[in-house]
């Protein structure tokens, strides 16, 4: 029997008084493409950040590839992992940010090779060849030596996807990858993500692109006020929502 790649159990996260996540439980299966939708403040981005440990959870547990994230159980207590261990766990996930967050002082190619050479300590000529192949895959082979400031938003985001893929993650996390883009640049980024989905990558995508969700997602999860309200096949959740809150959200968005 296959096991979920990500198992989220009763995860809560507070920012001061604000409850960003209220006891969320969710499984993500290998090869699955999951789209998380919901209004801003619904907790979908926080959920991604908790999986990548950019935010530490307050209670519950997240298992990635069978390994408990961020803490170690010993003698009936949980102990926080050190920075080195957390860094090792992060290598299993790739993160794509809303605002790209490319390193502006490095070229497109250097952005991609930074992690494999500096963190994974791999040989630079081998990494370079792989990085050029990744750039070709996202359609930017000619932009290897361009700095981020010389690239359009769509091109930057495609480099950011290549940078995340260079670490050979098991899971790709996309945090509103097209929200900061001009409308005419959204398509090129979504095309790269579709190609990635087709190649069998497990993906969690926080998005407002319902067309993309309908076309590519195996499962759509609707979140509201820090909780999962409804989930299921894209055609069901987007086409025939059962919950009133889902209906209200969809009618407001479309």
């Amino acid at each position: 029997m296959t096991k979920p790649l990500v198992a989220i159990r009763s995860v809560s996260k507070n920012f001061g008084e604000f409850q960003a996540l209220k006891s969320v439980s969710l499984d993500v299966w290998p090869g699955e493409v999951m789209c998380l939708i919901g209004a801003s403040g619904s907790g979908k981005t926080t959920l991604l950040r908790c999986i990548n440990q950019l935010a530490a959870i307050d209670s519950g547990g997240i298992w990635l590839d069978g390994e408990l994230l961020g803490v170690r159980e010993q003698g009936g207590r949980l102990h926080r992992l050190g920075e080195r261990e957390i860094g090792r766990q992060r290598l299993k996930t790739g993160m794509v940010f809303q605002r790209f967050n490319l390193f502006p002082h490095k070229t497109a190619l250097e952005n991609i090779t930074e992690g494999p050479t500096q963190v994974q300590g791999r040989k630079s000529d081998e990494v370079r060849a792989e990085a050029l192949e990744l750039l070709r895959r996202v359609g930017l082979a000619a932009k290897a030596d361009s700095y981020p400031a010389q690239l359009s938003g769509g091109q930057q985001q495609r480099v950011a996807i290549a940078r995340a893929l260079a670490m050979k993650p098991m899971l790709m996390l996309f945090d509103e990858p097209t929200s900061a883009l001009d409308p005419e640049l959204v398509g090129e980024v979504l095309a790269v993500m579709k190609e990635l989905a087709k190649s069998g990558m497990t993906m969690m995508v926080v998005t407002h692109e319902l067309g993309f969700a309908r076309e590519v997602a195996d499962r759509v999860v609707y979140m509201d006020q820090g909780a999962i309200v409804e989930q299921g096949r894209a055609s069901d959740v987007l086409g025939a929502p059962r919950e009133e809150r889902t209906k209200a959200f969809l009618s407001a968005v479309i």
Binding site: G87, M95, N101, Q118, V119, Q120
Partner: peptide, 22 residues
């Protein structure tokens, strides 16, 4: 930008390496 620290962390960098390299 704080996003630079996060991007560095996301590719597995520790605090000091992120400071030095990024």
């Amino acid at each position: 930008d704080i996003g630079q620290y996060e991007a560095a962390q996301a590719i597995g960098m520790g605090r000091l390496r992120a400071l030095r390299r990024i």
